[in-house]
């Protein structure tokens, strides 16, 4: 969905091509840091999910806990996915990420209690969906990487960039939600907001499914 892959990017190359590209051979922490942060800030699938996650978290402590679980999840699969060369179909993984947004919106309106009479563990859910989001990131990152030169540095830089981007984006979201929470409209519209979140999630998933049918 989020085509983080720009058509143009510098990437490391191997020995004998050296002549021309030696200066970009190997680790390039700056560009990968930037790409990671950009992917997160401009990645509305990740952002919508995080909005869903922190929607009802009024205490900063909880925000930090849940976001840490999400971070743990996506870092595991991001690092493991790239280092292990795991490549999942980008449309499938992005569709799942879209559905994670739907899940969160549905959970927020009490869907699981009301419809299925169950109450899934929200911490486990955010961790598991973190794993899927990381797999999506790993798939995107492998688009940027052709060479194995400096792969560890580059992947760690990308991951660090993702976290920076996440903090930047969350700061804005938390600030807005905190202000909104003090107003009466917050509760009256929370149901509508989470329904809108589901619309967004269904839309993201649908676009990816169509992409899968058309291009895979």
């Amino acid at each position: 969905m989020v085509a983080g892959a720009a058509a143009v990017h510098a990437h490391p190359m191997e020995g004998s091509n050296a002549g021309f590209v030696q200066s970009v051979d190997g680790p390039a922490p700056g560009p990968f840091l930037y790409l990671g942060a950009k992917h997160m800030v401009t990645g509305y699938d990740h952002l919508l999910f995080l909005v869903g996650v922190i929607f009802f978290l009024s205490r900063l402590k909880d925000v930090v806990l849940y976001v840490s679980l999400f971070t743990l999840g996506h870092s595991l699969t991001l690092l493991g996915g790239v280092l292990g060369g795991v490549s999942v179909n980008a449309y499938v993984i992005d569709a799942i990420i879209g559905l994670s947004v739907v899940y969160k919106g549905f959970e927020n309106i009490g869907g699981f209690e009301r419809v299925f009479k169950v109450k899934p563990n929200t911490k486990v859910a955010v961790l598991v969906f973190g794993l899927f989001h990381g797999l999506g990131l790993a798939t995107k990152l492998q688009d940027f990487m052709v060479s194995e030169n400096g792969v560890v540095t580059n992947i760690l830089s990308f991951n660090a960039g993702v976290e920076i981007g996440q903090i930047l984006a969350l700061t804005g979201v938390v600030a807005l939600l905190t202000i909104w929470r003090t107003r009466p409209s917050y509760l009256s519209y929370s149901f509508a907001t989470n329904t809108a979140l589901m619309v967004g999630g269904f839309l993201l998933a649908g676009i990816q499914m169509v992409g899968f049918v058309l291009f895979s």
Binding site: F56, I109, G110, G111, R114, S190, M198, G201, F202, L203
Partner: peptide, 27 residues
């Protein structure tokens, strides 16, 4: 934390359906 009053089962189903249909219509 939870909503002060949990929406009814019917309301949840309707809103999920509306969300799905809205997304499908836009798509």
């Amino acid at each position: 934390p939870e909503l002060p009053t949990l929406p009814s089962r019917r309301k949840v189903l309707v809103s999920t359906g509306v969300a799905l249909l809205t997304a499908a219509a836009l798509l």
